[in-house]
């Protein structure tokens, strides 16, 4: 992935930093230039808790470029507790079967790697089953 493109979205990717609309208070992720609820502009940064539930998911056996080394992997729509739904990989599933409605939590992981071992490593959010002992 091109460095500037990766770099400018680091905060969003590393830590699920989205936005809150100053007009209608809706929480937005990924960031948008116009609020999808009220049409207002100008947002303030908002850090999401990273807690959510699986809304839908799929285990992929055919990967696009940049992800070939990770198959099979599971991608999900995760409904965050603050409202928005995000697309993210699930990780650390172990033997646990995934189900719609399963509680998950955000972790920061390696997302992809291009140019073999020469390019930058792209880090970003993934979700895992909520860990026992997490409060």
């Amino acid at each position: 992935m091109e460095v500037p493109r990766y770099w400018r979205l680091q905060k969003q990717r590393y830590a699920l930093v989205g936005e809150i609309c100053p007009h209608c208070q809706v929480k937005i992720f990924p960031p948008r230039d116009v609020c999808p609820e009220c049409g207002g502009e100008a947002k303030q940064p908002f850090s999401f808790s990273g807690k959510g539930t699986v809304f839908s998911f799929t285990t992929m056996y055919d990967a696009p470029k940049g992800f070939e080394m990770n198959t099979p992997y599971t991608v999900a729509l995760v409904k965050l507790e603050e409202g928005p739904v995000v697309t993210a990989q699930l990780t650390d599933l172990g033997e646990q079967p995934v189900e719609i409605g399963m509680p998950v939590e955000m972790v920061t992981r390696r997302i992809r790697e291009d140019e073999e071992d020469k390019g930058i490593i792209v880090y970003g959010y993934k979700f895992r089953p909520v860990m026992a002992g997490t409060h």
Partner: peptide
């Protein structure tokens, strides 16, 4: 560590 982990990701957690 899993496929998507390294010292940076583990340190973050």
């Amino acid at each position: 560590a899993g496929l998507d982990e390294d010292v940076a990701t583990m340190s973050i957690e």
